[in-house]
Write a protein that binds this DNA or RNA. Structure first.
Lengths: 223, 223
DNA sequence: GTCTATAGAATGATAGAC
DNA sequence: GTCTATCATTCTATAGAC
């Protein structure tokens, strides 16, 4: 049907334009011109500009979440139902980091679109992210199985900090490169994944008494 | 002077409206109506909507940066020119976290404005944040003085991860509360500061070689 | 210098013909 | 399903009053 063609032409033109120029600089008129369709077609097929953006983001987001859960499932099966905490963190941050920092990040519009979504965070995307809690709960459950002794709150803080490092690295990639004058290699994706995983594991496995008031840690050397 | 009155009326109305309803939902017309001034006064005093937002953000941002540097300076003087790495991280993330998560975060419009700025990240604010590198360099320098043996890149990654945890906690406060069903106490600001500092210190102390036994660290509770 | 009134350009959305 | 024409709203710019 011609409708499907128009619909997907809009989607692919929009994703490419948003990836190239960001959400703020692309109008519906830019998109329909690039897709060679009529202006009103956007509202006919998607209802509004925001719903078009939402559909783009949901599509890519579901793919990442699927990849995460596949890795998690594989890790749990390899460990007989209980994955190592490092493997859980790797399944959590690996797909996102590889998708947004990998060599594909220059070539694939999908990857560049997700980077934009991470950096600019427009309202329709924020709304979707807020409904992502159910997905994260599956990782919290796996973490509890992996570390049965850990306080519940520590599990959530560990999950939260792991996501913090991954997303902040994507968001502030440019700034970190500039700040470190190239010393931090943002192209070494595997190295970054392992760095984030290592810190996440240490954060969770390192401190014993963090469930109530976290211990105050002091470096013994260098004072 | 009447000019100062108009100017500051715009500033304070804008900050309050942005804090309450976010950047996306507030128009210049909302602002001038609330400030009881003419629409053109905004462009006369600030040049554009974006420059108004930028001025609001710069004002609050400078205050936080001053506080950070004061704490850093105090810590370095207390240590005879070389601050403990924990004190450096505390000076880095403490002011921001206290400002955005503290009890003032409900009452102070300034705090709620900064939370919005953290979450929504509109173009004028992104531009300013990208020029924040010089400020961060001072912390990187203090970290080098504190840990002279550390590899340069590890210093920057440690700085980066500390900011990641602090900012992500502010950005995703609501989601973490929902995810943990209240188990993570986002009102315990001091506890959060110490948690972020503890993880940051561990990340830097053990992050260089992931397999090596980490932590030449000792827990010391109480203050 | 300071501010007001008003016009201009661009955008997202929609009604109705085909 | 598609398209033309049009609307309401938004930010911006400027001429001129005080």
């Amino acid at each position: 049907m011609a409708s499907d063609h128009t619909r997907s032409a809009i989607l692919s033109a929009a994703e490419r334009l948003y990836a190239d120029r960001g959400f703020g600089d692309v109008t519906l008129r830019d998109i329909v011109a690039s897709a060679n369709v009529n202006l009103a077609a956007v509202n006919y097929h998607f209802g509004s500009k925001d719903e078009l953006i939402a559909e783009l983001f949901v599509t890519r987001s579901l793919a990442t979440n699927r990849e995460r859960l596949n890795e998690l499932k594989a890790a749990e099966e390899a460990g007989g139902g209980r994955a190592g905490i490092d493997a859980i963190f790797r399944a959590l941050v690996g797909p996102t980091l590889r998708g947004c920092l990998g060599p594909s990040s220059e070539g694939s519009t999908a990857a560049r679109f997700m980077i934009r979504a991470s950096i600019e965070s427009v309202p329709p995307i924020r709304r979707i992210k807020n409904r992502e809690v159910d997905h994260l709960r599956k990782f919290a459950a796996a973490m509890r199985r992996s570390l049965p002794g850990r306080a519940e709150a520590d599990i959530y803080w560990g999950l939260h900090f792991a996501l913090a490092m991954a997303h902040h690295t994507i968001r502030e990639r440019e700034r970190l490169t500039k700040l470190s004058e190239g010393l931090c290699d943002l192209d070494d994706v595997q190295g970054i994944v392992e760095r984030v995983v290592a810190v996440s594991v240490m954060a969770l496995a390192g401190g014993e008494t963090k469930s109530k008031a976290p211990a105050r840690l002091v470096a013994r050397d260098g004072r």
